[in-house]
Write a protein that binds this DNA or RNA. Structure first.
Lengths: 337, 337
DNA sequence: CTGAAAGCGCTAACAT
DNA sequence: ATGTTAGCGCTTTCAG
């Protein structure tokens, strides 16, 4: 059980001051005009004994932790998991660690997580905002902590964000269904005040208005358990036998929909056509394969982390925020053929 | 931009010493015989101004971080994601935070992650061990840090662990296929020296030996990209047209298998029956639904976190480790009917 | 019952 | 070019 070495141990062993060691370790040797020879010797010794600076002490002293906090709705959802992994990769390459957690769209849990992140002196935040955390975000900003949002954003708070053109995406998908001759097109979504969900709903409404067909909207409460979310879907479809096409607000709902349609012995696409917002590995494999609105996952992750890294490097409190809107792709598969 | 309050600020505002505040905040008021009245007053004030102790400073001082490090192969895999979430829940209720990451079965990445966790003074470790980290684990143990493994374990290192009876599970599943009249049963798995994979392979071999049929084994290299793992599966099935049943070593492989079988126009179960190790939401929905060996996810998570919490609370260096083996369930569905 | 003071490991003014 | 030293915010021994 070897004692952990400290910078003082290193300094003593080498008969120099810990300041010198600190400067060398932080790459400020040149600046401080420390001899090449000494630098060499210190670095060699440090490597030899495997000394690692205590990051806790470092953070306490500097106020920086080289950590980025990432909050998404559900890290086990493929969409977020993929983005998280890519963000993590890029962050690592730039010397940042990622610490992430799922908000489960729960305002209170999110508040606690933000508090915990603050507590750990996280340097920057990447957040998919649930409703009602406006104040918490505002407080982060006020304290000069960079915040980048994605997926959705909070209209009343000025932050950088990266989103997709949700409205056009569902508008376009709905139009596609209309053009295929469907009359009774339903939109099943989560009840949510989040911008992304509102926009998706609006896109659908707009297309339906143009098609002169009535809207058929079902908003499901977002819950932890599957069953109480699946049942309303089933009830809704039972109440509206006329439905001949469904657009789902995200991939979780699409899975629910597939289950219900199977249980109801509805044929896809003969009885009901369907489109999922968010693609999923499994949609391509399913029989019939499922038409989906695919988000540019790689681009989203790239943009998010790049913006944040830029903010982290330039601490000027620039008031102009970046708002990036990316485009989705409608992947047409068998469920709408 | 309000200045963060420190314990000194609290003490000054109340005209008492920071020691007293510290004692009260750490519930040692009784022990130190501090007046009820003062305790009340301090707590009230603390809540009022929203003071939160700086956990960095606390950790630096105490050496404890109240954090548990969780390392699994792939946090976006449903199996691990579900376990992680449940572990997180229970940990929170006991005052611990979880910080997790994916090893991707990469030894070096795992070593770096362990180093990072150590650096952050993580109090305890939950690890699904990749190959070759024996020494790193040993070093953790030597330094008195509790380590609980699950899914697999490292035979040469004494730690607590929670696993399932892998050998019996595949033995049983293979027997089931044999009893159904299948003769050419293949086992497709990841090439791995991990105990769980070895045991699964052994279970299959044992059942095949009893059935007097030849074994048909394909070991795939674990990679980041899907395609180079899918291709070998396809090649293998093309080379062995006689195969009439397949047992997959885990759910990721099963997904690959389903894709290949679809591309090859093989009917399931008429041409080929199949069983997946690890269940998946999607297997029940797929047509035909997929027979799977389901692990008791909830039980695994419960056991893991409970053992770790116990170790964390009783710091006696008890040498006797807990080895828990849980049972799986063969969920028979249409893919083997 | 309460306070003074040391110290966890590190950084960075300020000296020299 | 290198050393001295004062904290970052907290816990905890030791003295009252």
């Amino acid at each position: 059980m070897k004692k952990k070495l400290s910078i003082v141990d290193i300094a003593n062993s080498l008969n120099i001051s810990k300041t010198t060691v600190s400067f060398i370790l932080n790459g400020r040797a040149r600046e401080k005009r420390i001899s090449e020879e000494l630098v060499e010797r210190v670095l060699k010794y440090v490597k030899e004994v495997g000394y690692k600076p205590n990051s806790l002490a470092k953070s306490l002293r500097t106020g920086k932790s080289n950590t980025i906090g990432l909050l998404v709705q559900d890290i086990s959802n493929n969409f977020y998991a993929t983005i998280a992994r890519q963000i993590e990769d890029l962050a690592y390459k730039n010397g940042y660690k990622i610490i992430y957690s799922s908000t489960e769209n729960d305002t209170q849990k999110t508040q606690e997580l933000i508090a915990m992140f603050r507590d750990r002196h996280v340097d920057g935040y990447i957040i998919v905002p649930p409703e009602g955390i406006e104040e918490d975000i505002r407080s982060l900003i006020k304290d000069g902590l960079p915040v980048v949002m994605f997926d959705g954003y909070i209209p009343k708070v000025k932050t950088d964000y990266v989103v997709v053109d949700n409205l056009f995406s569902t508008y376009n998908a709905t139009r596609y269904l209309v053009d295929k001759g469907h009359k009774h097109i339903a939109f099943i979504t989560f009840k949510s005040g989040q911008t992304q969900m509102i926009e998706r709903l609006d896109g659908y409404k707009q297309a339906m208005k143009e098609s002169k067909n009535p809207t058929l909207i079902k908003e499901i409460d977002f819950l932890q358990e599957d069953k109480p979310m699946i049942d309303p879907v089933r009830d809704f479809l039972n109440e509206h036998k006329e439905i001949d096409a469904i657009l789902f607000g995200n991939n979780r709902l699409s899975i629910f929909g597939l289950k219900v349609l199977r249980d109801l012995n509805k044929r896809v696409p003969e009885d009901v056509a369907l489109i999922s917002f968010d693609d999923y590995e499994f949609f391509e494999l399913y029989n019939p394969s499922v038409t989906a609105i695919a988000q540019p996952i790689g681009d989203i992750a790239d943009n998010v982390i790049n913006i944040l890294l830029r903010r982290l490097n330039t601490s000027n409190d620039n008031d102009s925020k970046e708002h990036i809107t990316l485009h989705t792709t409608l992947k047409i598969r068998k469920s709408t053929e």
